[in-house]
Amino acid sequence: MSGDLWHRLRRAEWFGLLLISALGVLVLALAKQTFLSPFNIYVMLLGFSLSIMVAMSQMVIIAIGQMNLSVGAIGGLVAISFAGMMEVWGLPIPLAILAGLLIGVLCGCLNGILTVVTGITAFIITLATLSIFKGINLGITEAQPFYDIPAPVKWFGNASIGPIPYLVILPVLAVIAMWFLMNRAVIGRHMLAVGGNPQAAALSGISVGRTIVAAHALSGGLAAIGGMLVVARLQIGQPTIGDDWLIVSFAAPVIGGAVLAGGHISVIGTCLGVIIVTLITNALVLLAIDPFFVELLLGGLILGAVGLNRYREVNAEAARARAHAAPT
């Protein structure tokens, strides 16, 4: 039984990433004693919790073969709306959470509907809505944060069991839900089919337009959860929330093996992608390297990951050509 599991594990496409992550943990633990300190683990889990929501928000859109530049803008708009509705209108927390989710989903729907109706690429549409969402954000806040966050939200953002923050609960549930969605649910299959070949999907009875809108709505919802988690974590409703999400949103899914042309993503791979990004960020802090280098490293990592995927593709094609050339 355990042998079978090991065999399946080794064959998984993310096995290499798992080894890299494990190796990273090992090296850092040996290099720095503080790495495995409860506080450091707590910090890394927080970083993971926030990044994974951002990464999955983008992953869904990569699955359908598109890009969503407005992930951060949606997260930011939801964050300040969530904080503002509680501070200004005194909205109860559960209602504010629902309203925040709704805003995220609606923003996503807008992206999806615009791409489907106009036929303009999501890259351009979300570039425009990025600016629109950010503009609404700045219009509401006048670039000032909402400070008056209710105590239970602040508590949730700070509480932990040992080194494990409560904040990690939602992202873990979201990852599990996303795994089922992308691997077992019909709608997830539809998304991957549309990303893989929209013509074939349409001629197989899949509503391509509806699937695209659903993916964008889901992306908006995931970004919304991310935005609200950051509010709980920072304890204020900062208008700048989401500004730095874009790079990691692409880095993690791509490191995790996503095909940018669409049709293939890996939820577990994306998680490992986030873990690797988190480890790198943490290593830079522990080794007292200027944190500004994080962006540079992430950029390099994206190039490396895309390059590796391309290399595999070219190799596979060459192997296929050789196999076909051989007399049958």
């Binding site: 649910a185 709608i187 299959r189 089919a193 893989g196 074939a200 999907a201 293939h264």
Partner: peptide
């Protein structure tokens, strides 16, 4: 066909809606 997908998924694409159970899971 969706060339980057498996044989199983390419054949199954027409029946996902029919075999889906609770929560649209297959």
């Amino acid at each position: 066909l969706i060339l980057i997908h498996s044989v199983l998924r390419n054949v199954g694409i027409t029946i996902w809606n029919r075999i889906a159970g609770v929560l649209g899971l297959t």
